[in-house]
Design a protein around this nucleic acid. Structure first.
Lengths: 145, 145
DNA sequence: TTAAAACATAGTAATTTGATAGGAAATGAC
DNA sequence: GTCATTTCCTATCAAATTACTATGTTTTAA
């Protein structure tokens, strides 16, 4: 039930970027977040390709957020950096993987409950919530069409 | 955020044992749960050492539950077979591991919330609940001394 | 022109996971 | 009492994942 360093490091970087207006260099981000520079480089690149951050090359270059913090959903970030939120393939919404014992499985309801609970928490939390220290917070009312 | 095969296999075995009164041999359990025999052997041994099951050796031997299903807490089983329920060491109750950034960390409240939520679900679920298909179910009122 | 910084990708070390192997010890059937 | 059956125990190993390291290329502004 662990979250890997990759997701953790990405969130650390996003938080730092969310706290500043200008661009910050990889070196400085690495220093502040205690992440190895080369490793962080890869992660930031991925965040950039996913559209969360923008970069500026060259001498005064660095990274900055590309979206406003309330548009950055933590669940999405984690899912994109380290795969499905579900504890088992058989209950994954984004990466369903069938299991021969699935029919009548007495465990599946438990895994489903866990996946739904965790997903709801993470999909209901934005970078802004983290920045504002709004965790835990009241459930946002779900909009239904 | 995955649960490993070890925990899953252990729970499959416990469920099967909970559905029968007599002892069942490793071979038969392996067949029914689709788990490699040698691997299952290790897992059952561990479950035995933890007091969840008892064994009988020799010709009509096998395994059976040692505790009544309502005394077997799923959260405990998972924790003992595959480690802490927390997503990060910094929020683990049973295996706390400090982090230099912990003070003022904006992520910690989120990890704490996740760990507490998952732990509450799993510690509130027993083998009996699984056997009775009682998942999801109403929260049991917590007994406080 | 050049130094600083991001870009891109290849490689690698460590850890965890998921087993496999093989013999020792116990037990009941005969 | 011997023998087939089954658990007990531990060592080993292979594959996958994770976490990082390395190295060179491209862009940019001073």
């Amino acid at each position: 039930m662990k979250v890997s360093t990759r997701g953790e490091y990405a969130l650390r970087a996003l938080i730092l970027l969310g706290q500043h207006s200008g661009v910050i260099s990889i070196g400085e981000i690495a220093e502040k977040t205690l992440v190895p520079v080369n490793y962080l480089e890869q992660i930031l690149l991925q965040l950039k390709n996913l559209g969360y951050v923008r970069s500026k090359r060259g001498i005064r270059g660095g990274y900055a957020l590309r979206k406003p913090p309330d548009q950055i959903v933590i669940g999405e970030v984690i899912r994109q950096l380290e795969g499905p939120l579900a504890p088992m393939g058989c209950v994954s919404v984004t990466a369903y993987d069938p299991c021969p014992l699935e029919e009548g499985c007495l465990l599946k309801p438990l895994w489903t409950l866990i996946r739904d609970t965790v997903a709801r928490l993470l999909e209901n939390t934005t970078l802004e919530d983290l920045l504002e220290g709004r965790i835990p917070r009241e459930e946002r009312r779900v909009k239904k069409a």
